[in-house]
C-alpha cells in the first residue's frame, strides 16, 4: 500500500532543500550565534523565530552512529551502512543521514566525513545520497 503526501515546507526548510539542489548546505543562525543544521524556523533555546540562513561546509565530523547490518528495502543504501549524526563544519548541531563507510570497523565517533551528492538533485533530502569518509 502506498500513499503519496505533498508536504509544504515553509521558508526555512524550503530554502535548505533548494540549496541542496545546488549542492550547498544551509543552517539557521540564532541570536546567540549558534548555527543549526538542518535549519529550524525557531531557536530551540529561546523559541524566537530564526530567519538568518548561513552556508555551512559539506564535510564534518561524526558525533554518533548506529550500524545497520541488514538494510531494508526502503533504506538509502543496499549494503550495510551506518546511520550517523554528522556535525557539519560551521554548524553547532548534527544532522542524521546515512554513512557509507564500507564496514563496521571503519566507523568511529569523531571521524571526518563528507557529503556524497546524488547525481540528479530535485530539492529533497535525498539530494545528499549519503555521507562517506572524507578523502584525505
Amino acid at each position: 500500500m502506498e500513499l503519496l503526501y505533498r508536504r509544504s515546507l515553509g521558508p526555512v526548510v524550503g530554502a535548505f532543500l533548494t540549496a541542496l539542489r545546488e549542492q550547498r548546505l544551509l543552517g539557521s543562525r540564532t541570536a546567540e550565534g549558534r548555527v543549526i543544521c538542518p535549519p529550524l524556523e525557531y531557536d530551540p533555546d529561546s523559541g524566537d523565530a530564526v530567519d538568518d540562513l548561513v552556508e555551512v561546509g559539506s564535510a564534518g565530523v561524526v558525533t554518533g552512529w548506529s550500524w545497520v547490518a541488514e538494510p531494508r528495502a526502503k533504506h538509502p543504501l543496499p549494503h550495510p551502512f551506518a546511520w550517523a549524526l554528522v556535525q557539519l563544519d560551521g554548524a553547532d548541531t548534527s544532522m542524521v543521514h546515512a554513512l557509507d563507510a564500507g564496514s563496521l570497523d571503519a566507523v568511529r565517533t569523531g571521524m571526518r566525513v563528507q557529503v556524497r551528492w546524488a547525481p540528479e538533485r530535485t530539492g529533497h533530502i535525498t539530494d545528499i545520497a549519503c555521507f562517506e569518509p572524507e578523502a584525505s
Partner: peptide, 24 residues
C-alpha cells in the same frame, strides 16, 4: 525511501516535498 516529483525539479524555490509513505 521517497519518491521524486517533477514539480520540484524545476529551478524555482522548493516549496513542497513529495513523501511516499508505503507499507509492505
Amino acid at each position: 525511501m521517497t519518491d521524486t516529483d517533477p514539480q520540484v525539479a524545476d529551478d524555482g524555490p522548493v516549496r513542497f516535498m513529495p513523501q511516499l509513505i508505503s507499507l509492505d
